[in-house]
Amino acid sequence: MKVESNDTLDLRGVVCPINFVKTKLKLEMMNPGEVLEVILDSGDPIQNVPKSIKEEGHKIIEVKKEGDFFRLKVQRG
């Protein structure tokens, strides 16, 4: 089942913790159940942001690796 996202946030080149902060704020402005596509770099961002977002109460519903970065789909909690 292909999940469509309501919005996209491209955080390539953004350093920690700014990428987490931007993701958190963007999700807060969305309605519960809506899906945000987040693009994160490899390395620290992908290792830290998903877990932190999950701890905020949201759900990581898809993770796809594309070369040097990852495309995530997050469902707003």
Partner: peptide, 10 residues
């Protein structure tokens, strides 16, 4: 596990 591969990255 959802097979996201983040552990292999980490």
């Amino acid at each position: 596990c959802t097979g996201c591969t983040i552990c292999a990255e980490a």
